[in-house]
Deep mutational scan, measured.
Amino acid sequence: DEFHFHWNGRDIRVRGDSEELRRLIEAIKRGELSEEEIERAIEILER
C-alpha cells in the first residue's frame, strides 16, 4: 500500500502498511502532533 497526503505544502508518499503507520498518518491529518514531531516522522517514513 501507499499512503499519500499533503502536509505543509509538501506532497508526501509513504509505502508500507502497518497499524502503526496508519495511526501516525491519522494523527498527522488530525493535527495531533507538533510540527517538529511531524517533520521527524516524515523523515523516517521517507527512507
Rank of each mutant, 00 (worst) to 15 (best):
D1I: 10
D1Q: 10
D1N: 12
D1P: 12
D1G: 11
D1V: 11
E2L: 05
E2H: 15
E2Q: 05
E2P: 04
E2K: 03
E2C: 08
E2M: 05
E2W: 12
F3P: 03
F3C: 04
F3I: 06
F3L: 06
F3K: 02
F3Q: 02
F3M: 05
F3D: 04
H4W: 10
H4Q: 05
H4P: 01
H4K: 04
H4C: 08
H4L: 06
F5C: 02
F5K: 00
F5Q: 00
F5I: 03
F5G: 00
F5D: 00
H6V: 07
H6L: 04
H6F: 09
H6D: 01
H6A: 03
H6K: 05
W7A: 01
W7R: 01
W7E: 00
W7L: 03
W7V: 02
W7I: 02
W7C: 00
W7T: 00
N8S: 01
N8R: 15
N8Y: 02
N8P: 00
G9V: 00
G9T: 01
G9F: 01
G9N: 05
G9A: 01
G9L: 00
G9E: 02
G9W: 01
R10L: 03
R10K: 07
R10H: 03
R10E: 02
R10M: 03
R10G: 00
D11V: 15
D11A: 15
D11Q: 13
D11H: 14
D11W: 15
D11E: 14
D11P: 15
I12G: 00
I12R: 01
I12C: 03
I12F: 15
I12A: 00
I12S: 00
R13W: 15
R13H: 14
R13Y: 15
R13E: 10
R13K: 14
V14K: 00
V14R: 00
V14H: 02
V14C: 01
V14M: 05
V14N: 01
R15N: 14
R15K: 13
R15Y: 10
R15Q: 11
R15E: 10
G16L: 04
G16W: 05
G16V: 14
D17N: 12
D17M: 06
D17K: 06
D17T: 08
S18K: 06
S18L: 07
S18C: 04
S18H: 07
S18Y: 06
S18M: 06
S18W: 07
S18T: 14
E19S: 12
E19I: 14
E19G: 07
E19C: 05
E19A: 14
E19T: 13
E19M: 14
E20F: 15
E20N: 09
E20S: 11
E20A: 13
E20L: 14
E20P: 13
E20M: 13
E20G: 09
L21E: 06
L21M: 11
L21Q: 10
L21T: 11
L21G: 07
L21K: 15
L21N: 15
L21P: 02
L21D: 10
L21R: 05
L21I: 12
R22G: 05
R22C: 03
R22Y: 15
R22A: 06
R22P: 02
R22I: 12
R22T: 06
R22D: 03
R22Q: 08
R22H: 07
R23M: 12
R23T: 09
R23C: 06
R23A: 13
R23Y: 10
R23E: 06
R23D: 07
L24E: 00
L24S: 01
L24C: 03
I25T: 05
I25C: 04
I25Q: 04
I25V: 13
I25P: 00
I25S: 04
I25N: 03
E26P: 01
E26W: 14
E26G: 13
E26M: 15
E26V: 13
E26T: 14
E26D: 11
A27G: 08
A27F: 14
A27V: 07
I28G: 01
I28P: 00
I28K: 01
I28H: 02
K29L: 10
K29V: 13
K29W: 14
K29A: 08
K29Y: 15
K29N: 10
K29C: 04
R30H: 10
R30M: 11
R30E: 08
R30A: 12
R30N: 10
R30I: 07
G31L: 05
G31S: 04
G31Y: 10
E32Q: 11
E32H: 10
E32C: 06
E32V: 10
E32F: 11
E32A: 12
E32N: 09
E32R: 05
E32S: 13
L33P: 03
L33N: 03
L33K: 04
L33C: 04
L33Y: 07
L33R: 03
L33H: 04
L33I: 08
S34D: 09
S34E: 05
E35V: 13
E35T: 13
E35F: 14
E35C: 06
E35D: 14
E35G: 12
E36A: 14
E36K: 12
E36C: 05
E36N: 10
E36I: 13
E36R: 10
E36P: 11
E37T: 04
E37V: 04
E37F: 06
E37K: 05
E37P: 01
I38Y: 03
I38D: 00
I38H: 02
I38F: 05
I38P: 00
I38W: 04
I38R: 02
I38S: 03
E39M: 10
E39S: 10
E39P: 04
E39V: 09
E39L: 10
E39T: 11
E39Q: 07
E39H: 08
R40P: 03
R40G: 07
R40D: 07
R40Y: 12
R40N: 09
R40K: 13
A41F: 08
A41Y: 07
A41R: 10
A41G: 04
A41D: 03
A41V: 10
A41L: 09
A41N: 05
A41I: 14
A41E: 05
A41H: 05
A41K: 07
I42C: 02
I42E: 01
E43T: 08
E43L: 13
E43S: 10
E43P: 05
I44P: 02
I44N: 08
I44V: 12
I44Q: 08
I44T: 11
I44L: 11
L45F: 14
L45Q: 02
L45M: 08
L45G: 02
L45I: 09
L45C: 01
L45K: 01
L45P: 01
E46W: 08
E46F: 11
E46V: 10
E46L: 14
E46R: 07
E46I: 14
E46T: 13
R47T: 14
R47L: 12
R47S: 13
R47Q: 12
